[in-house]
């Protein structure tokens, strides 16, 4: 317990590894910049990688929120995101504009995530972590089945939220789509940060996740807070799904399956309990996948998921707490 407290504190103060981590990140950013200045292809890949990485990052953020609230990895997070994207598709079919559907979908996702936690996760949570994980696996399959059942497995197309405009900066062409994806994700993440950092609800959610027993003593409705945490995660997942869809140009039920794996890698890379780490991890995975597939002949596009898997293994072996996470105390 003592180690728990001190290592937590170290993590918050930055700990010994922190300067090194920032140094590495700065070096990576500098490398990307230099590369981008020297090669237009490199620059384009980097920009695209950042946009895709933002999507991985926001899904990773959703996973981290759930993990912090309930110590559960939600395997259904990606499928939930996919399902809410289909809901947006349906709303658009019924005549809503893209952005109306976007907002409505986020609201629906918030409610859906909250209700799922209250009805399906909460009852098994006290039993064991494994039980909760199995329920999320069941949800994965269930949601997949329901979406296929309702909408079928064929491609659907949604209107493009950002148009097809392409900016030319120097010799580099940057699709407006990528800028839009990036901005939407960053704004969503910022709003969530503000919610957690500056509102009473956010404080209650943090307290409930950190110390449920003490939070209850000061009058925080802990169960409710954790459920809302799941709701928020579902909302962020919906953002991920809605931003992933235009990057794939089509909507299909498998939309989020590879992205879930990248998001796992991002979350582990950033540290499973670090929201900022999740986003940075997402960007890192997005950019490195793009560059590696292009420049490393041995790793072709089929190996993107195995690459992410390798990242997960490498991080867990070298620095299990990730770049920004707290050391899980598990002295065995």
């Amino acid at each position: 317990m003592v180690t728990a407290a001190t290592s937590r504190l170290e993590g918050l103060r930055g700990g010994a590894g922190f300067p090194l981590v920032s140094l590495v990140l700065v070096a990576c950013a500098a490398g990307l910049l230099v590369g981008s200045l020297r090669s237009a292809t490199f620059a384009q890949l980097t920009v695209q990688g950042l946009a895709l990485g933002a999507v991985y990052g926001i899904l990773a953020l959703a996973l981290v929120l759930v993990y912090r609230a309930t110590r559960v990895i939600n395997f259904a997070q990606g499928e939930l995101a996919m399902a809410t994207t289909y809901i947006a598709y349906q709303l658009i079919q019924w005549g809503l504009s893209y952005w109306e559907a976007f907002v409505a979908t986020l609201a629906i996702a918030l409610v859906l995530g909250t209700v799922l936690e209250l009805t399906l996760i909460r009852p098994v949570l006290h039993r064991s972590g494994i039980a909760a994980v199995i329920v999320t696996v069941g949800l994965f399959v269930l949601i997949d089945g329901i979406v296929n059942w309702i909408w079928g497995g064929d491609f659907k197309s949604m209107p493009s939220p950002f148009g097809t405009k392409i900016y030319h900066v120097g010799g580099v062409s940057i699709a407006r789509l990528y800028v839009g994806m990036f901005v939407v994700v960053v704004v969503s993440a910022l709003l969530v940060w503000v919610l957690f950092r500056f509102t009473k609800l956010g404080l209650g959610m943090r307290a409930a996740a950190l110390r449920p027993a003490e939070a209850a003593l000061v009058g925080v409705r802990v169960d409710w807070m954790l459920a809302v945490g799941w709701g928020l995660a579902a909302l962020l997942g919906a953002v991920a799904g809605l931003m992933a869809e235009p990057s794939q140009f089509f909507l299909q039920p498998t939309l989020m399956q590879p992205i879930l794996v990248y998001a796992f890698a991002a979350a582990v890379l950033g540290g499973l309990d670090s929201p900022a780490g999740a986003l940075i991890g997402g960007l890192a995975i997005g950019v490195s996948l793009n560059l590696v597939v292009q420049y490393v002949p041995a790793i072709s596009s089929e190996l993107q998921e195995p690459f992410a898997f390798a990242v997960i293994i490498a991080v867990l072996l070298l620095k299990p707490s990730g770049l920004f996470g707290h050391q899980e105390v598990r002295r065995v």
């Binding site: 407290a5 918050l12 009473k200 404080l203 209650g204 307290a207 110390r211 939070a215 003593l217 000061v218």
Partner: peptide
């Protein structure tokens, strides 16, 4: 039962939750 991860102000804010 203080929230050692949170600031003093946040602890007080929680008191008046």
């Amino acid at each position: 039962g203080t929230f050692s991860e949170l600031t003093v102000w946040e602890n007080l804010r929680l008191g008046a939750y």
